[in-house]
Design a protein around this nucleic acid. Sequence first.
DNA 1: AAAATTTGACCCAC
DNA 2: GTGGGTCAAATTTT
Length: 288
Amino acid sequence: MENLSGNSRRKAIEEELVRGRDCAEQLRHVINGSCVDGLGTPFAEQLVKDVLMSFTNSLVFFNNPSSESHDLHVWDSSKSEDSQESNCKSSTLKERRGCYKRRRTTQSWEKESEAPVDDGYHWRKYGQKEILNTKYPRNYYRCTHKYDQSCQATKQVQRVQEDPPLYRTTYYGHHTCKNLLNPEIILEHPISPSGSSKFLSFDNTFPTPSKEDFPFLSSFPPSVKSEEEAPPSASSNDYLISSELTFDNSPRHVTLSTLDSEYKGINISDVLYDSAQFDDVFEPFHFR
DNA sequence: AAAATTTGACCCAC
DNA sequence: GTGGGTCAAATTTT
């Protein structure tokens, strides 16, 4: 990933802000009813998402000039969502074997960690490949609820370094599944005793946050089990869910308000994160 | 028995 | 033609 610094970083921030402004302007038209019918709510939701993403990106650029930290790369091409659906016309299982469309572009993000992370979701391994010029095989996982809930989330995990052990996890798509194992989830944030932040309590429609593993909170995953051979790495309770976008007492925390937005078509994973993690753990966005 | 993993085959994008 | 993402039968684990 490239390091953004100096003018290029400033330019990136500027472009993001301009983009956000444009989206907000479009959103205004939608709200005023001057938008073409039929695009209404979904379009508005997309605009909201874009605006929030603009802020998010800008803040990341602003807060994170360094590229020495661990990785979180995000490239959003969500408008061309994953096309794993098979076009195959064959009907029998055997005929359908291997019949699929390879993913071209989808939203994805990477994370590197010293151990394969337990992100709280239920993953089913469906493949393993030796990758050219790499020492370790790449493991492919899909959401366990791919079929029962049509959850399209997948991830790839690959060991990239021996000593110290380093694993790169690349997530593709968002979880749309409901995790039924942890019906009651309450978020708390230890460094925010003032009460200025609101804790969110989720019912079984929303999985639990596991802050360290899911910087972009596709949804809040409950911790269920660790996978692969290594134990999950230690975590720090860094997620803060606030009722408003604010720089609060912990100066490096930036939080965005989200409530059940995922169920209204806005995926909070696109807009919610803790900026501190980017300082410590992640690089700025990666554009392809 | 059901769920999960392994692994070779298959096929598409490049 | 090749690399890599996915499928699915076989096998293992729970």
